[in-house]
């Protein structure tokens, strides 16, 4: 057969087989393959979009978290500050109270001591008076044993009276 003149038989076979091949391949190969490829591409596209969305959401959540965290931190600081203040106040109050109680005890003690002291003093005074009177009695008894001394004393008193 010649190189440059196409053979009729081969043309007919080629046309027939090739058309059949295109038909069969289209039906049994290209259709399922291309559909699967398209399906996969769509699913990949969707997955990518979903991932992008998730990332944005994540960033949003993170920002939210950051905000919440900041708020919580502020809250904590506030609570700590308040607690510290309360504690300080409580300590202060307790201290004041204690001081007051102590003062009261001290005062009470002082008063009791004062009272005891006065009572003791009074006792001492009474004793001293009693001793003085006893001494004076003894002295008087001794001094006024004679009449002259008695007269002299009367005269002295009389003199004082007359002066007044």
């Amino acid at each position: 057969m010649d190189l440059l003149t196409p053979g009729t038989g081969l043309i007919i076979w080629q046309a027939f087989v090739f058309l059949l091949l295109v038909f069969l391949l289209a039906k049994f190969a290209w259709k399922p393959i291309l559909n699967s490829l398209k399906e996969r591409e769509t699913s990949i596209q969707q997955a990518l979009e979903a991932a992008e969305k998730a990332r944005a959401e994540m960033a949003h959540l993170q920002a939210n978290n950051e905000k919440l965290l900041q708020e919580a931190r502020n809250e904590r600081d506030k609570i700590l500050k308040e607690a510290r203040q309360t504690a300080n106040r409580l300590v202060e109050e307790a201290r004041t109270e204690a001081r007051l109680a102590a003062d009261k005890i001290v005062n009470d003690a002082r008063q009791a001591i004062q009272l005891e002291k006065q009572a003791a003093l009074r006792e001492v005074k009474v004793q001293v008076a009693r001793f003085s009177i006893q001494i004076a009695e003894k002295l008087l008894k001794k001094n006024l044993e004679n009449d002259n001394a008695q007269k002299e004393l009367i005269e002295t008193y009389l003199k004082d009276i007359s002066v007044n």
């Binding site: 081969l10 076979w13 080629q14 087989v17 090739f18 059949l20 091949l21 069969l24 391949l25 049994f28 190969a29 290209w30 399922p32 393959i33 699967s36 490829l37």
Partner: peptide, 19 residues
């Protein structure tokens, strides 16, 4: 031509089966 056609059908049927 027949061999080529049969080979193409076999290969791409296998590819389609893979999908």
């Amino acid at each position: 031509l027949f061999i080529n056609a049969v080979l193409l059908l076999a290969v791409f049927a296998a590819v389609a089966r893979g999908y």
